[in-house]
Simulated scan of single mutants.
Amino acid sequence: MEIRNASNSKDVKFYTTDRLREEFLITNLFTKDNIRMVYSHIDRIITAGLMPVLQELKLEAGKELAADFFLQRREMGCINIGGKGIITVDGTEYVMEPRDGIYIGMGNKEVTFKSVNPDEPAKFYMSSCPAHKSYPIVKIDISKAKKVPCGSVEDCNKRVINQYIHPEVMQSCQLSMGLTQLEPGSNWNTMPSHTHDRRMEVYLYLDMDEDNVVFHMMGEPSETRHIVMHNEEAVISPSWSIHSGVGTKAYSFIWAMCGENQEFDDMDHIQTKDLR
């Protein structure tokens, strides 16, 4: 497990490109038969990529959590962005088709991951944050997610937000998670931009080929920076930072949030004319 410390907005103004990427970008999330975890001290969120091919992978707490098992004091959400897989929670199997999601609450002890076909391995993208109460396991396929159409063709940001872990879909302690899909011809997300001091966010960009990228915008509204993102890379967004992106082609992204509340509209909007 890699540990990332929180970054002060006053310091980030002076970061080089390499330093920005070192602090906020998460690469190489999906490698064969491996669990890649990054623990951020920003709201103590854990971002992970699990890609079982020939082996079954087991979620372990590790010394970093000082816990008997991973979900002893945590909750988690997971969306499968690869081939068909199976998640087993304390002996109960959950078949995970591509784009299926699942919420697993605090107190579940043994969680394992495997692929059905090694030639088309599952890719499980996981977000986890501290929890104070145990809620039931909920399997959420993309058809059960709440659909929120947004944007327009004229503004190059026509998209659908699929809310998987969200108060209007199911209960969790503080974790929210979903998948936003841009329509062909659109390339902007979350613009006009906003911040939300009550919670942080992590984006995973996906559905891009190797010739396309997303320019992820971050930083304070008056001190914006960008990170060039490639397919299946994630980026940590502190609560003081904007989190917009523009791609060279349409793409999708998974968002995960944790913090003080789960109100989707609890944000501080920024007019585009005020960005710098």
Rank of each mutant, 00 (worst) to 15 (best):
S239D: 07
V116L: 01
K273V: 13
L25V: 10
I242L: 01
V116M: 01
L179F: 13
E210L: 12
P167F: 00
T224M: 10
V169F: 01
C258Q: 09
L59H: 02
E2C: 10
I35C: 02
S237Y: 14
G245F: 04
P121I: 06
V148I: 15
N212V: 09
K146D: 13
H166K: 00
V53Y: 02
L182V: 02
H196Q: 08
I81R: 07
F14T: 09
V153F: 15
K139P: 11
N162P: 09
F113N: 03
E60N: 07
A145P: 08
K10G: 09
E183Y: 15
S152H: 06
L59A: 05
D141S: 10
I87P: 04
T190P: 07
E220I: 07
K147T: 11
Q72H: 13
M1W: 15
Y103H: 09
K58M: 06
L204H: 04
K58C: 06
V148W: 15
N157F: 02
G62D: 05
L59I: 03
G91S: 01
V235T: 05
C150H: 15
D265F: 15
P130T: 05
T92P: 05
Y103R: 03
V53L: 00
E183L: 10
D274T: 00
P52K: 02
D209R: 07
S176Y: 00
A131Y: 14
V169I: 04
P184Q: 03
A145M: 11
I86Y: 05
G82L: 10
H216L: 08
L54N: 15
I165A: 01
V111H: 10
F124V: 06
H41G: 11
S252Q: 09
T195H: 11
D141C: 10
V111I: 15
A6I: 11
R74V: 08
E232Y: 03
C156A: 10
M200T: 12
I140A: 09
M191L: 14
G85F: 15
E183P: 03
T16S: 15
T112W: 07
R159Q: 13
D33C: 00
E260M: 03
Y205S: 06
I102P: 05
